[in-house]
Design a binder for these strands. Sequence first.
DNA 1: CATCGATATTCCCGAGTGGACATATCGAGA
DNA 2: TCTCGATATGTCCACTCGGGAATATCGATG
Lengths: 123, 123
Amino acid sequence: MKKSSPVVGLSHLRITLSESFYVGPGRADLMELIAETGSISQAAKRMGMSYKRAWELVQALNEGFGAPLVETARGGKEQGASLTEAGREVLERYRGMQDATRRAIARDVDALAALHSDISKRK
Amino acid sequence: MKKSSPVVGLSHLRITLSESFYVGPGRADLMELIAETGSISQAAKRMGMSYKRAWELVQALNEGFGAPLVETARGGKEQGASLTEAGREVLERYRGMQDATRRAIARDVDALAALHSDISKRK
DNA sequence: CATCGATATTCCCGAGTGGACATATCGAGA
DNA sequence: TCTCGATATGTCCACTCGGGAATATCGATG
């Protein structure tokens, strides 16, 4: 009994922590890819966005939060980017909230999807 | 024991039903205001957006869903806009999902807020 | 058949966004 | 001290988005 279509359902969940900081799906994905690749530029490439945009997002994350969530190091072999402890926690919490939300709204999503396909057939 | 700040927490919840249709906070608010005021222009005014934008959103809702969620009537005394039965159900379901989501993520939001204020104090 | 209020539709323009590109910078290691 | 890979930062430009305004349309009602 697998899901029929992964596209339907929760697509955007944004959590606001203050006037200057929020986390949404894009920022979370970027953080995750930075953790995976150890590089802003690599993460940007995988997300299909420019390095500039990714770097600006990192700035927004760090400055908005008030403490670095993404650390960077220039030069040498160890250069690159990585998540700080706070960054890892923010990401983990966000993923948890996504899961909790999907579970919480599953019935409503099904009901809406049913209504939608119902009406589509009718015409 | 009331909430300290209503700004913190869930700020955006978008539900995608198909490639051409989704509901988010803005569309839901617009639908609700149309139901309340019985007019696209009135609803637009209350949301601080132009009539044009509101009208475009209504188009996106109706065409995206594949069936009218907002009905309009021109001319005479009965002119205006209102929600169809499907529109009311979509709106009601969306509000329900918002509530369910808020409940589901409450603990995580608190934990994130705690982490955030913790770090803010530290510096 | 003139009025009226709201919908429907188009045109023009400014602001903002983000991409592409070009450099500058850093610092470990060869 | 030169190289190298990645970060850091600015400039320029095409494109999009949405606002504002103007106009057309509708149709019950008097």
